[in-house]
Design a protein around this nucleic acid. Structure first.
Lengths: 247, 247
DNA sequence: TTTCACATGATTGGATACATTTCGGCGATA
DNA sequence: TATCGCCGAAATGTATCCAATCATGTGAAA
């Protein structure tokens, strides 16, 4: 998307995004421009454009003459986003079915499904498998969205992932049965798309995402702190973006 | 929404938004920061934050070290956005039905529907009625989205309106039968919502928006110039104050 | 003791100056 | 004549400086 890594401001924007989504900057915390600029080793000017960017992404809130602070998301708000995500991803299935995916795309989905099968073959959830599973899950969902060939769908779903906890990188890796059922959805969705039945794939996808949202919001309202630590605090090693700040 | 605080940058952002959506800045045109800053009577600093804002709104595209230029939208792209809008607004109906609207909201919808009836009572489309009709249409759609009480839905649909021609301010005011049928949809949607049948309202809304998209894209591909002038084209040349057409 | 007012420090917003990159033209050479 | 390359102008990106606004703390008065 905006992988314009050529300018300092863009680098700052992605760095900040990581800092916020990873929880390094806590919700509702005020952002001190001078401190941050110093910490990131740049001037306030590019930092401010980065801040403006993130504010428009919805990760920061801005108040005139009072600066930026990290946006906080209520549990209901997170549930609301899942409502949107489920609808959008279902629509992606619908369109993908209508267009009839390329053979290459279908094979890609099958490969991803098989990857998941391999991980689940052990019959239990090994924490060391989580990164691979996360990668598989992200790629599966992204593939279907790409198959819809609607750039706006891509963009809107991407915006959805700007909300903490909503990203499909977040996996509830503690209940084998739930994960297995979730992956069964993947199986069925891939099969439906191969058969060109986008409508049925859409229905499955809608439930697939909705249930994930329900599950997550349930956990969050039960024990926000623990859930926050479990999901956000986890090392996101699937990320090939090792820009650690040397200050 | 982003009801701008009283900072120069925010003012510049809304001014630029108008300049772009009104066509004063033509698609694919490069934005010269110095010229624009001078023309708007401000420095490059606030202008640049405004530019960053609009870029994130999707109205401008940015390339590192090469500046901003006005985004151009293909007809297919505009059609794609309608696909999203139809799904989102349908979902708004679904949720509104599930939550069962407040009596106040239902009355508001009825009032809007009656306003439309009055305008159509003459049996023809008078150009002088267009602003009132547009207002009615915008408020009707906004009301339903608000009724869904999902702030993200509001935000995403609002983003949809950032694309030229997609806004529900754009009305094809030249075919009585089409307008009449469109308003008949409004009737049915309001009735369904009163009866709590969000699912049925969603189906109508989906078709309502989809058809508008089909119609618009058809016109656009038939005669892009004429359509552009008809819908967007307020006199966007000599007049530096294109406000006659009210939101 | 509480509250209001003022002043001072801190932080953000905007303008200007400087560095870096890109774009266009000019000329030289094949 | 066409193409390559270099140089200069112009536009962008960044840093720094100044102004305006907000927050905090102190002190005086009720």
């Amino acid at each position: 998307m905006d992988v314009n890594g050529h300018t300092v401001a863009d680098g700052a924007a992605t760095a900040l995004r990581e800092m916020i989504l990873s929880g390094e900057l806590r919700p509702a915390a005020r952002v001190h421009q001078d401190q941050l600029a110093d910490r990131l080793g740049l001037s306030r000017t590019p930092l401010r454009t980065a801040l403006a960017t993130l504010a428009n992404d919805g990760l920061l809130v801005y108040e005139a003459n009072r600066g930026y602070r990290v946006r906080e998301f209520s549990v209901e708000s997170i549930g609301s986003v899942f409502e949107i995500r489920s609808v959008l991803e279902a629509q992606a299935c619908r369109i993908a079915g209508r267009l009839s995916c390329s053979e290459e795309m279908l094979d890609r989905l099958d490969t991803l499904v098989r990857t998941g099968d391999d991980i689940l073959a052990s019959g239990r959830l090994d924490p060391k498998d989580l990164p691979a599973w996360r990668r598989m899950n992200v790629e599966f969902h992204e593939a279907i969205i790409q198959a819809a060939m609607n750039p706006w769908l891509e963009e809107f779903v991407a915006r959805t992932h700007n909300v903490p906890m909503v990203s499909d990188r977040v996996i509830l890796w503690d209940d084998y049965e739930i994960i297995k059922r979730s992956h069964d959805d993947h199986h069925r969705i891939a099969k439906c798309l191969r058969q060109g039945d986008g409508e049925r794939a859409a229905a499955i996808m809608h439930e697939h995402v909705s249930f994930a949202g329900d599950l997550l919001t349930e956990r969050l309202s039960k024990d926000p702190e623990a859930a926050f630590e479990q999901f956000i605090g986890s090392p996101h090693s699937a990320n090939s973006n090792p820009k650690e700040d040397e200050t």
